[in-house]
Write a protein that binds this DNA or RNA. Structure first.
Length: 489
DNA sequence: TTTTGAGTTGTTCGA
DNA sequence: GTCGAACAACTCAAA
């Protein structure tokens, strides 16, 4: 069973009758949820709560697209709990204030949750724990979000890793990740009387969904937030795409990637579930299955590495991991930034990616690298600008992966791309979208351009109606980037 | 302490 | 068309 960190208050006679509060955060699911499972096993009646906290200091507000996902996840979680005779009670406010008042209101005996790893989140959780200790209430935290706790993977010298491959080797030495746990068979919910504690709010009152204008239409048709959607997506991936994962995952026109990122972000599914379901599917698969399996697990490994980095570099979203990048002469170019954001750079693969992002809240991994490289190297715009845009527009944006990957592309990160690795958007398009299907899907202006020139439409003839002229010329931008990056050393 | 091998995803150029 | 080298050194992790 997953290790729990418990700080126990003194148990009083008759204490088992007092409810346990399960505080949901980035773990919006019932299966493989260690906090919920421990609550079920405690013998206490359960109260399920979510606290929308926009008041605690330092917490980064959830981005726009992710708020939409959060709304859907909360709705689904409440419905699923409802099927079992329970419900999700939602509160708003600073967690360190709300949780102790809930404990009083419910006369609770314990509070369980699954851990978070950002500095501000840890500080909040620490404050809650301190408050509960003063109330002599049991507080237990669990690992529901990662395969390995960030502090459990250490170099031989006992420190954190800054190179992925060494990190991943050490993780292998730590052994196979724990198997996921099923939904507890028995969930006994506390009958919540109308007490004097904090009053729950309606989900709609959190205003997580966009209105006027409602820009979430593309997301609704692309995604099903919540645990059931997550399980369906994982099964679909394991059945249909895992067998070709290593060879096909780089082609944005095929849906060969797992598409699990937003589900993992909000814990609609756990990485243990993804790991073990893929394991089982590959075991049933034939020749070459292990190569695909290892590739997929390798990607889960990068997610782990990002959390490892976040744990040891809490200001990763704003500070270069390599300080020499502080001297980088980033350009201040509002027009170029806007063209990039709106998918109007004149480079089809870049524009397709940025429009896919805007419409669906998600972008294929290969294209993320291309558009990020384009912003940082071709336009010489600070990676933080890109990070903030992704934060607001991605449904899967989280405080570990988003900054870690931006810094990786920019070259300022851990184990980062060398500065001379500058993607050529034309070559990347021709290599990974050879028929131009991906581009045509997202850039309708290019619908009639033949595959031979779809990634270099300026060669297709005179101006294409509605499609922008390139905002920079590749060769020129490449030389400029090499020069700027070369000066850093 | 010093040494040594290694390090996600690329592009261009010239032979 | 294909191939190898250059693009740079630097830092990490382990022996």
């Amino acid at each position: 069973m997953v290790e729990a960190r418990t700080m126990t208050g003194n148990m009083q006679p008759g204490d088992e009758a007092r409810p346990v509060i399960v505080w949901f955060r980035d773990d919006l699911r019932l299966s493989d949820n260690p906090a919920l499972r421990a609550a079920a096993q405690s013998g206490r009646p359960i109260v399920c709560v979510f606290i929308h906290d926009e008041e605690s200091e330092g917490l980064r507000p959830v981005g726009g697209a992710a708020r939409w996902w959060l709304h859907g996840s909360l709705q689904k979680l409440d419905a699923t709990l409802g099927d079992r005779g329970g419900r999700l009670s939602i509160y708003a406010g600073a967690a360190a204030t709300v949780v102790p008042r809930l404990v009083e209101g419910f006369h609770a005996g314990a509070v369980f949750w699954n851990r978070r790893y950002g500095a501000a989140e840890r500080k909040v959780d620490e404050a809650v724990k301190t408050a509960l200790k003063a109330q002599q209430i049991e507080a237990s935290s669990f690992n529901g979000h990662l395969l390995y706790e960030p502090w459990s993977i250490r170099t031989k010298a006992g420190g954190p890793f800054r190179v992925f491959s060494a990190f991943w080797r050490a993780a292998h030495d730590a052994g196979e990740p724990e198997p996921p746990a099923p939904v507890p068979s028995k969930l006994r919910f506390f009958k919540e009387p109308d007490m004097g504690g904090p009053r729950p709010v309606a989900l709609a009152d959190l205003a997580l969904e966009p209105s006027a204008p409602d820009w979430a239409g593309g997301m609704r048709s692309a995604w099903q937030p919540g645990e059931a959607g997550a399980q369906a997506q994982l099964e679909r991936f394991a059945d249909e795409h895992l067998a070709n994962y290593a060879d096909c995952r780089d082609y944005p026109g095929r849906s060969s990637t797992s598409r699990l990122s937003p589900y993992l972000r909000f814990g609609n599914i756990s990485p243990r579930q993804a790991w073990h379901v893929a394991n089982a599917a590959a075991g049933a698969g034939g020749h070459g299955a292990s190569r695909n399996l290892e590739k997929f697990q390798f990607e889960l490994g990068w997610r782990e590495f990002s959390y490892h980095l976040l744990y040891y570099n809490s200001d990763m979203a704003v500070r270069n991991l390599q300080p020499k990048f502080d001297a980088m002469p980033w350009r201040d170019d509002t027009n170029a930034l806007k063209a990039w954001q709106q998918g109007r750079t004149g480079y089809p693969i870049v524009d397709a990616g940025m429009r896919e992002l805007w419409d669906t809240g998600w972008m294929h991994n290969r294209v993320r690298m291309v558009v990020a490289s384009f912003l940082v190297k071709h336009l010489l715009i600070d990676w933080r600008q890109g990070e903030m845009w992704f934060w607001d527009t991605l449904v899967d944006a989280d405080s570990a992966n988003n900054p870690a990957n931006w810094q990786w592309v920019a070259g300022s990160g851990a184990d980062a791309a060398p500065y001379f690795r500058i993607f050529n958007p034309v070559l990347q398009g021709e290599k990974f979208d050879p028929q131009g299907n991906y581009v045509r899907r997202w850039v309708p202006e290019l619908a009639d351009i033949p595959p031979s020139v779809i990634h270099r439409p300026w060669e297709a003839g005179p101006d294409i109606a509605g499609y922008p002229v390139r905002i920079v010329e590749h060769g020129e931008a490449r030389r400029r980037a090499l020069e700027a990056y070369g000066d850093l050393a």
